[in-house]
Amino acid sequence: MSSNTYQLLAVAVCALCTFLLRLAPFALFRRGMPPFLRDLAAKLPAAIIAVLVVYCLKGLPAGSFSSGLITLVSVAFVVLLHLWRKNTLLSIAMGTALYMLLLRLI
């Protein structure tokens, strides 16, 4: 197999597996969801997004104290700013700016 063919196939395999994962729930419940699952699915967004937040912060326990502190302070800032101004763009932009600033100062 030439190196180009190998790379083309490698990307195709990766793309196919990613798509299959995303497809699975739709293929599994083609005739609609049982009511039990429907109620459960309604609770999932908040839970899954909470897990994604932890996923973004997964490097904290193994990282340095100061980088952990910078991250936690920036996350707290985003939460407070968002509760106060309720403006998604503002919260993300200011939070990221603060994080990048603290990274360079500390």
Binding site: V53, V79, T96
Partner: peptide, 20 residues
Amino acid sequence: TTGIDFSMTALFVVILVDQL
């Protein structure tokens, strides 16, 4: 641009706050 990836963390945090 070191640290720009925090914008994704911030996005999930903001959406979580809204969800809650």
